[in-house]
């Protein structure tokens, strides 16, 4: 085998770079669920239960968008039979009006940057 040193050094460098996310993950603090402020009024219920919303809110929003824009279905009837206007801006954000402590905190912790707010208007007071 010729160029032995270069080849082996290359393979080692490749492996180190490829596995670097794992090494970084091991060395940093363990994941903590961010403490978010869900809403002002604790008695109010969201469109679906917390576990579903936490896991699926992005798919739900996509589905809402397609239903409202393409099917003209602008009302969502949840599993309990309660009705909601389909609107991120005018339904979701009415209760969840603290952008920094709700949306942003969790998105930042999970390192995602959805660009909802380039078009949708954030509630007053939060930026």
């Amino acid at each position: 085998m010729y160029n032995k040193t270069a080849v082996i050094a290359g393979i080692v460098a490749f492996l180190v770079i490829c596995s670097s996310p794992f090494w970084c993950g091991f060395s940093s603090d363990s994941y903590k669920k961010p403490e978010i402020v869900t809403q002002k009024d604790k008695n109010k219920e969201c469109v679906e239960d917390v576990a579903f919303m936490r896991a699926e809110h992005m798919q739900l929003l996509n589905e809402w968008r397609d239903q409202a824009l393409r099917n003209g279905s602008r009302v969502y009837v949840n599993a309990k039979g309660k009705k909601f206007d389909i609107s991120l801006q005018n339904t979701c954000l009415k209760c969840h009006n603290n952008y920094e402590e709700f949306c942003d905190k969790c998105h930042k912790t999970n390192n995602v940057e959805p660009y909802c707010w380039t078009c949708h208007i954030l509630p007053k007071g939060s930026k």
Binding site: V47, E48, F52, Q59, G72, R74, V75, Y76, N78, D85
Partner: peptide, 17 residues
């Protein structure tokens, strides 16, 4: 397959479309 457990309706809350 829809992710949402609920249903969709056209009838708005309040006024008729």
């Amino acid at each position: 397959a829809d992710v949402a457990p609920g249903k969709y309706e056209a009838e708005p809350l309040g006024r008729k479309p």
